[in-house]
Design a protein around this nucleic acid. Structure first.
Lengths: 229, 229
DNA sequence: CGCGGCTTTGATGTTCATCAAGTAAAGTGG
DNA sequence: CCACTTTACTTGATGAACATCAAAGCCGCG
C-alpha cells in the first residue's frame, strides 16, 4: 500500500538518514522516493528481481532472507528502523540477492537507485556517509554469523533472545515477531531444537513463555550461556 | 621489508585500481602509499591494531583471519591479487577486526586511509568505484559462508578444492598454499576430518595427492559432490 | 468442517568432534 | 651434521551433539 509521502526535508528521521545533504539536495531526493506500508508477513522484495531502489526502514521490522536450492530458507539478518537495507548488493549487482519480508507492520521508503548514484557522484560527504553505513551493516552481519558458528545450540538461542531484548526491544519482556521456524532459519538449526531448548530454558526458570511472549527472568544466566558457547 | 615504491601513475595495475582517478589525483595518492614484501606465513596486520591504511594486494595470496576467545582461529576469506583488503572495516571502525597474513610470498601496497578519505570526498566517481568494490567483496564473502553452512563436510572439501582450481590457480593441478589445519579453519571443520575426506577422495580416484600438491582427476564428480551438499 | 502449516515431545540415527597414538617433516641448537 | 624438539599429518576408536523421523495437538482459513 502506497501512502502520501511526507516531504524528506521535514521528515522526522531526516537527520538519521541524510545528514550530509543540503536542503536543495534533499529536495531532489524527495522527487525520487516513495513510501509504502507492508503488513506483517508481506513480501517487500523478491530475490532475483531487478534492483531499482534502496530501501530505508522507517518503522517496523523486516527480514532479509534467501531460499536454498533444496527449498529451505535462511535468514541473513533482521533490520531495525533507520537501517538502510540491501545496501549490500545494490551497488554490485543488478538483481537482489535476497528477499525482504516484513515481520512486523512496517513503513518503508524506496529511494531510487539512480538518484542515490547521482548524489554520490556529486557529494563526497554523502558518499562517505553511505560507505560508513555499508561497512557497519556488513561488519554486523559477519560478526553475528561468525559468533553463531562458534556456539552450540543452547548458546545460539541464548544469544538471539538477548539480541531481541537488548538491541531490538530494549526490554526483558517482548513478543517474538518471528515463528520458531524463522528463529531456526536465523540461527541455523532445526525448529524442533529451537522449541526443545526454549522449553529447557523455561523449565530451568530462565525465561517465561506465553505463546509469542517471552520474558527473560535471568538475563545474567542467559548471558553466561551465550558466552560459554 | 619495504621496497622502492614504483610510481602509481605508471603502475602496471593502475587501471585495475584507480580507473576513476585523474593523473593529478594519482600523483597525490602516490605520496601517501608504501609498498612492502611479505614472506609466506608473515603477519601483515594484527587484529585489534589501529587502521591506518587500505591494503591493496599486488602479488601473492593473503588470508583474513580472526582468533576466537578460546584461542582457535577462523579464516574469513582469502584475497587474490588486485583485491582491496579490509575495505570492510576500514570505514566503520578504528581498529582492524581481522588479522591479515601472507599465505604465499606477497607484495602489498598500503594506501593511507586519510588520503582515500580525501579522494572520496572530492571525486564522486572514485567513491562509486570504492563502493562497488566493497559491495562485491562483501557479497562474495557472505555468499561463500552461506553456501558452506548448507553443506556437509565432503561437500565443503569439494567446494574448496574447486575454488582453488577455478578461481585462484586456473588449473586442475596446483600446490595447496594452506595447511590442512588452515583449510579446516576456512571451511569450519576439524583438521582430522579434512585429512580423512581428502584421503577418501584419493582412494575414490577423484584427486591425487603429493604432500601439498593436488591434482583434480574428476572435476565433474567433485562438482557433483559440492552441489549435493 | 477438514486441510495445511506451525508447534510440541519422544525415540532413533547420522554426522561430526574428540581422544589417542603413531609417523613424517621441519625447524633448533650443539 | 646429527640428536632433539616441535609441529604437521594420518588413521582408528569412541562419544556427544544434533538432524531426522514419527505422532499428536493446536490454530487459522477456505
Amino acid at each position: 500500500m502506497q501512502i502520501k509521502s511526507p516531504d524528506c526535508t521535514v521528515c522526522q528521521f531526516r537527520s538519521m538518514m541524510f545528514d550530509s545533504l543540503s536542503r536543495d539536495e534533499l529536495g531532489r531526493l524527495n522527487t525520487c522516493k516513495s513510501q509504502h506500508l507492508f503488513g506483517k508477513g508481506e513480501l517487500i522484495v523478491r530475490e532475483g528481481s531487478a534492483i531499482q531502489a534502496i530501501i530505508y526502514l522507517h518503522k517496523g521490522l523486516i527480514k532479509l532472507h534467501k531460499t536454498t536450492s533444496d527449498g529451505r530458507s535462511q535468514i541473513i539478518s533482521i533490520a531495525r528502523p533507520f537501517d538502510f537495507v540491501g545496501l549490500l548488493s545494490v551497488f554490485s549487482n543488478d538483481l537482489y540477492r535476497y528477499s525482504i519480508t516484513a515481520i512486523e507492520d512496517s513503513s518503508v521508503c524506496f529511494i531510487n537507485k539512480d538518484c542515490i548514484h547521482h548524489e554520490i557522484l556529486n557529494n563526497g560527504k554523502f558518499a562517505l556517509d553511505i560507505i560508513r553505513r555499508m561497512s557497519q551493516a556488513t561488519d554486523d552481519v559477519l560478526q553475528a554469523k561468525f559468533s553463531l558458528s562458534m556456539k552450540h545450540l543452547r548458546g545460539r538461542i541464548a544469544h538471539i533472545l538477548l539480541d531481541f531484548a537488548e538491541n531490538i526491544y530494549n526490554t526483558l519482556a517482548f513478543d517474538l515477531p518471528v515463528s520458531r521456524k524463522e528463529i531456526s532459519e536465523l540461527i541455523d538449526m532445526r525448529p524442533e531444537n529451537v522449541i526443545r531448548i526454549l522449553s529447557e530454558f523455561r523449565k530451568d526458570g530462565i525465561i517465561r513463555i506465553n505463546g509469542p511472549e517471552i520474558v527473560i527472568l535471568k538475563p545474567e544466566l542467559l548471558r553466561q550461556i551465550s558466552d560459554a558457547g
